[in-house]
Write a protein that binds this DNA or RNA. Structure first.
Lengths: 208, 208
DNA sequence: AGGCTAGTGACAGCCTCTGACAATTGACAA
DNA sequence: TTGTCAATTGTCAGAGGCTGTCACTAGCCT
């Protein structure tokens, strides 16, 4: 943020992002054109594409921050924790501290609303899932490293992350269709779904 | 397939689909325009969009058939099987019988090659994942019904499917980056990843 | 045989995204 | 302060996906 040039650039990007999110969450993603965004910020359409690879990238920018936050949390888990426990703790801690991370850029409320938009907009939801798949691969590597394993030789890191990721995506989805759109509700849901993994995998459900 | 009109329609659709898949698997998805496909079949671009909602739909048409095949297999599992076992058996049986289902439309080889294209083309992969998420929801309902549960009251059906689905997507991905692109390899991978779920969830991996 | 309708082609147009070039503006040294 | 260089932006042009409209043709039905 040294020079004037850099500050101006940052301001343009911020305006673009904030305006985009505002429009997405009010009139919907599909209903908002890039021209709308550019016009609202009073820059050319071309400029928008110089800051964001596409409409999609702007829509997922906050999610990207959250993801980075979680991955960092996983990396910082103490090595003695069992793999699944490390993932669990990282996510729970992530929810607790996400507020500050997001508020540094936009109101947390905008993030939560955007989350809904993502879950309910097919093309965004698809992109979100693809991104999740990428993240899972990198987390599997982190896990493997923690345990001193080779991801390509031992399937357990990837399997563990696949299972965990599956449950996390379920959690996100159920949160988005629920009524309580708070980070706290997200946290609570996370805990309850994770503790259902054991029971769900048990032989028969009838003998609960 | 009664009238001439219906037969002609079917032929146009077949030609469109087959040509599209052929082009996608040879020059790549992004490199193939709808105009290319339409031109190769000698119909107008507009006609392509009358048969497929978009380029994407054509690319995922076979996958859609396979999915329907699997879902049907799950529904036909004997009620006494434990949930996870029913899913496992359905998928394995699915792989065994998929050949005939696909061959009825296009050479199985085209399906396998298209699968690779999907996994390696971001936008297609994303769409594929989104579709998988939809399927998971419907399978969770099947499972709940089998067990006489309410999907919204008992989390276990959705959790079980989320876990299973996570592992299946991992399986697909690893298959697509491997060397053996046969249905048999897919089957083998499925078995080996599924049996890693237990070990991956265990407390510590070091005391294997 | 003639009316009816599904299917198609031909346009026109919107929107996302990219390349190219020129104009503007900030950075920095003389 | 001024001139030069480089970064940023606007403008234009155009490709490609996708949709609406309308007229026309070919199969269908009585």
């Amino acid at each position: 943020m040294e020079t004037l040039r850099e500050r101006k650039k940052q301001r343009t990007r911020d305006a673009l992002l904030r305006t985009a999110l505002e429009l997405f969450t009010t009139q919907g993603y599909e209903q908002t054109t890039v021209d709308d965004i550019a016009a609202a910020v009073d820059v050319s359409q071309r400029t928008f594409f110089r800051y964001f690879a596409g409409k999609e990238e702007a829509a997922l920018a906050l999610e990207e921050m959250a993801v980075a936050h979680f991955v960092a949390a996983v990396r910082e888990r103490p090595p003695h924790e069992a793999p699944m426990e490390a993932l669990r703790q990282a996510v729970l801690e992530g929810w607790d501290t996400l507020n500050d991370v997001i508020e540094a850029v936009v109101p947390i409320e905008l993030y939560l609303r955007m989350y809904q938009v993502i879950e309910s907009t097919p093309v965004l939801f698809a992109a979100h899932l693809r991104r999740s798949a990428e993240i899972e691969e990198s987390i599997a590597r982190v896990l493997a490293e923690r345990e001193g394993l080779d991801v390509d030789a031992d399937p357990r890191p990837r399997v563990a992350v696949a299972v965990f990721g599956g449950v996390m995506r379920l959690t996100e989805r159920q949160w988005s269709v629920g009524e309580d759109f708070s980070l706290d509700a997200m946290r609570t849901l996370t805990v309850s779904y994770l503790e259902q993994v054991g029971p769900a995998l048990s032989e028969s459900w009838r003998t609960r």
